[in-house]
Design a protein around this nucleic acid. Structure first.
Lengths: 174, 174
DNA sequence: CGTCATTTAGTTGTGCGCAATTGAATTGTG
DNA sequence: CACAATTCAATTGCGCACAACTAAATGACG
């Protein structure tokens, strides 16, 4: 059972430009891209879920820990900037990490609006057990390091383009 | 503000194999891949959200409609196979589509376990308004058609590899 | 100094994704 | 036929993503 849909009605276009493509063909290609991206994202998520289960972490929690392992401690705001997540997502997530004993949250003394997130000893220790995760992920993709880097570059390019487009599409920003 | 993290401590490895890479380096690369993929997925989702708002659809609902526009009618089970989603996700989603008047759900006469999902006239009509979405998405990515197809191929390869790896990782399937 | 805009976390509500379970219908087997 | 196993949709529970809002602290400005 391959993830590839049956039809590929766009294969008749000679060049790669968008202008002389039928809308129906585009809708079909869009369907394929949608599915592929959506499926890839969830498949990736699924592999992480399996690997992270031993560590008691979800995938987004792992992302937070990766940042904290690198930086040690930082306010929720900065964390959100690194991860492109807002407090609506981070606040409950951090509470769960705190409940798990991996993290402490305390109001900053110099700015009482801010909340500092720092690793506990237990949280710092978890890094050792996490070290094997990336290798197993890399193996799971079937890609070598160069391919992984290339994929990263391509995804970043995609994200940048999409973010810019999103800004232009948003009503009131044109 | 680029999505690219600061360090790239993996750039010292000469070949693309995994064997002679330090765990710390891999953890760093993993962080970058994680972020890139997660960010790309959400950025894509965000652009769709903006474009689909006019149609009153969420991104997953759009995926369902794409399948229905192509097939017209099919049971929940088949829909789930196409989208790789289970009834836990599809059941409430389909209820919302039904509440929106785009879809009807009715028990199959020949097999009362199965539920047939079919487009209403309104649901069928929505396709016309959806035809412009793919072109705007394609434009938003900044990729041309060939690049989009290449991306799709790469993502499908990734998904296949990850799914296989997930099966092997799952306890009790080795 | 007081007032107002901004910054920062947190809360609420909606929807998705997935695991686990339930319950009904069907199929297979003796 | 009776009974066990399977199939299918729905439900429940948890966590994440995001929009919209609240509340408190800070900073800027008259």
């Amino acid at each position: 059972m391959t993830p590839t849909p049956a039809t590929d009605s766009t294969s008749t276009t000679p060049d790669g430009t968008l202008d002389n493509v039928l809308d129906g063909d585009l809708l079909s290609l869009d369907k394929q891209i949608c599915f592929s991206l959506h499926a890839a994202s969830r498949a990736f998520n699924g592999v992480y879920r399996v690997l992270l289960k031993d560590l008691g972490l979800t995938y987004p929690q792992y992302l937070v820990m990766l940042v904290l392992w690198e930086r040690g401690e930082l306010p929720v705001k900065k964390l959100g900037e690194h991860l492109r997540l807002d407090s609506g997502t981070l606040s409950p997530l951090l509470k769960r990490l705190e409940a798990a004993g991996l993290v402490r949250r305390e109001r900053s003394a110099r700015d009482e609006r801010s909340v500092e997130v720092r690793l506990t000893e237990e949280g710092r220790a978890l890094r050792e057990r996490a070290l094997e995760v990336p290798r197993r992920i890399a193996t799971a993709t079937g890609f070598d390091l160069d391919e992984l880097r290339a994929l990263r570059t391509r995804l970043d390019r995609l994200t940048t383009a999409l973010d810019e487009a999103a800004l232009e599409e948003t009503p009131g920003c044109g």
